[in-house]
């Protein structure tokens, strides 16, 4: 069966607002094709988890959705606009409607926590200093980081860095929130707290959330739908139950943490050993 045929098309979703539309997306790094004609929709108010093993193309997919990597062909429409085909002013405005919590936090090391969280407000609004501080502190409260205004990023624990990154990502009340490996590298208790935070953000603020992760437990807890990526192809998009019940061997291998043995013919094996080129 071809991999494209394994994609479960979302049913009865035509009446839901599409906030992100990915169509026939192909991305290269140099000569290497990373994403092979990928198509996907993210709906308003849902949490979509993009899941896959190492090298599956998750990070490339996220970077392409964020407009940090230009696709070779196909397009990504965020809130109806193609990030790669709009002028700079429109792109800046569009980016104010999205928030990103990076894997390592990406907090500015020269600024304290409060200044980091206030930065988008300072750059995109004309609010006075006190109002910006109040708004930033409100978001710090949402992520349980109250009282840590003056700490520098180097003084924060892993969980606090992630929470500060979330606070900065949501300070402009974005419509779409992207999270890159939100619970990676955290102990189970803190990871669970971050998962709860993502659920709260979706429920309380009605955000559409795209999470890239390889943590199964976390994915099953927070996802409304899961997109399973494998070697640059989407194997399946479906609910948690649909993914768990999938008969696809590669998906089951991923869920059950089974490694796949690569079967090579002898000629190919010899070619690889000798690094011979065709």
């Amino acid at each position: 069966m071809s991999e494209a045929a394994l994609i479960d098309s979302p049913e009865a979703d035509t009446d839901r607002e599409v906030v992100i539309e990915v169509r026939d997306l192909v991305t290269h790094y140099g000569p290497r094709e990373i994403l092979h004609s990928v198509s996907l929709e993210v709906y308003a108010g849902e949490t979509l988890v993009i899941m896959g093993g190492s090298g599956s193309g998750k990070t490339t997919m996220l970077n392409t959705l964020l407009g940090l990597v230009k696709p070779t062909s196909g397009y990504v429409r965020l809130l109806g606009q193609d990030l790669n085909n709009i002028d700079q002013v429109a792109r800046t405005k569009l980016r104010q409607k999205m928030g990103v919590a990076f894997q390592g936090g990406a907090l500015f090391t020269s600024m304290n926590v409060l200044q980091n969280i206030m930065l988008p407000l300072r750059e995109h609004t004309k609010l006075d200093e006190t109002t910006m501080q109040i708004m930033a502190r409100l978001k710090m409260e949402v992520v349980n980081l109250s009282g840590f205004d003056d700490l520098m990023p180097a003084e924060l624990s892993g969980g606090m860095i992630k929470r500060a990154a979330f606070a900065r990502a949501i300070v402009m009340d974005p419509r779409v929130l992207f999270c890159d490996e939100p619970s990676a590298g955290l102990d189970p208790v803190v990871a669970s707290a971050i998962d709860d935070l993502i659920i709260d953000l979706r429920d309380a603020m009605g955000m559409s959330i795209v999470v890239v992760t390889h943590e199964l437990e976390s994915a099953f807890k927070i996802a409304d739908r899961i997109c399973v990526l494998d070697q640059g192809n989407i194997l399946m998009v479906g609910t948690v139950d649909e993914v768990k019940a999938s008969s696809n061997e590669r998906i089951q291998n991923l869920l059950n943490r089974r490694t796949e043995e690569e079967i090579l013919d002898p000629d190919e094996y010899l070619r690889r050993l000798t690094a011979a080129k065709d």
Binding site: R95, F102, A106, F108, T109, P120, E123, H124, F178
Partner: peptide
């Protein structure tokens, strides 16, 4: 800043 994705963070913030 580039390695820590701070430059990426600026870009996606529209800065």
């Amino acid at each position: 800043m580039r390695i820590n994705q701070e430059v990426d963070a600026l870009e996606v913030m529209g800065v």
